[in-house]
Design a protein around this nucleic acid. Sequence first.
RNA 1: UCCCUGGUAGCUCAAUGGCAGAGCAACCGGCUGUUAACCGGUGGGUUGUAGGUUCGAAUCCUACCCAGGGAGCCA
Length: 430
Amino acid sequence: MQSVDISHVAEHVGEEVKVRGWLYNKRSSGSVVFLIVRDGTGFIQAVVAKGEVPDEDFEACDRLTQESSLAVRGIIKADKRAPGGYELTATGVLPLHIAEEYPISLKKHGVDFLMDQRHLWLRTPRQAAILRIRHEIIRSIRDFLDEQEFVLVDAPILTPSACEGTTTLFATEYFDSTAYLSQSGQLYMEAAAMALGKVYCFGPAFRAEKSKTRRHLTEFWMVEPEMAWVDLDGNMKLQEELISYVVQRVLEERRNDLITVERDTGRLANIKPPFPRISYDEAVEILIKNGVEFEWGNDFGGGDETILAEQFELPVFVHRYPTDIKAFYMKPDPKRPEVCLSADLLAPEGYGEIIGGGQRIDDPELLSLRIREHDLPEEAYAWYMDLRKFGSVPHSGFGLGIERAVAWICGLDHIRETIPFPRLLNRIYP
RNA sequence: UCCCUGGUAGCUCAAUGGCAGAGCAACCGGCUGUUAACCGGUGGGUUGUAGGUUCGAAUCCUACCCAGGGAGCCA
């Protein structure tokens, strides 16, 4: 007999099929048992009536516990009472494995408990929906860049030194020396862009910051495109097109999952280019107008970002930050060297910075000066300096944080639900 | 690292300084259309840890541990 995925039962109405999955919930009324089965693609209720299945199968229903694995044979029927529109009139029930007492009930649980059970928590409808949306976001990012003829270039995870110098790195033994887990592939992408033109990497990034907020992970995933011959404006243009493409794809392909996570899709539907662009100077004015005591030259805090983002319906670029608060490789604005050709993209609704990027320094002397000013070891950056010695060109790039994008698009209040197995300060299990 | 809040049954939570309880889950029984089904019954506790105050501490005090929320830093 044909096994079908629950997501495809509509194509088999009236046919007798087999559904394989796990028992999500069970209700019984004496001689009728309702088995709610999930198989990862969806949920369906199997109606098991005494006398309609072999007695042995009916009695087996008694033993089935939450999350037991089973196969149910039955006829697919359209039924208005069923949440998905279809149910299965069982002709046979075949338990495969009777689950032990399952820790996650259908009632409310606390976050700490659920995080300890993360490997099982993934089975719940909401978490499964988030993972499918995450998949669609990643797939659409790659489709977009691939269609634009970017080349995927993998950056190393084990690195000899800090890329940006400042943030804390995870150190690990590397034979007789020390290696660090990468916190960004960007510098390597700059090398690749000089070889291939338009490139991107997609991989994990590690930051040993003792951050304890709803926006931070110690291990997260990042897409980092880098482009030769592209300036700040071209960089922002690509970003707004990418983000719009991703949001529209999720709306098209994962609407049911957005409903499951109770996302208000109205605001997402409007995400189309162009996005507003404000300078750091204008951002400071907005903050002061909103009663924030803010001094020019400081970086924005989470609350500041929320105030800025609230001024706009769309994601907003904040460009030309003070050179002093940005990374050493950011190119100063030739007209105004105290600010640099950087741009961050702030997501709406208080989700904060989802992209950080900018135009890189292409002048070898200036880059050399910056490396010394930031007290970085010159010998470690010798290869990076070479990129400016052998045919230096203007180039730009950015880093998009996958988890922050997922949090925003799903409307989640904490980043820990955006990744299958989150790594947080004080949490590395399971 | 700092600030705030919390830790009681497997889970979610109650309990004026005075007998440690409910709902769910588990187990037993009932019900032919249930939608986190419902109804009846049973079992289940070193109140985070260590001290202290008190006739008496889940409750008050001290220290520590753990968690949640926030700050800084960032994607």
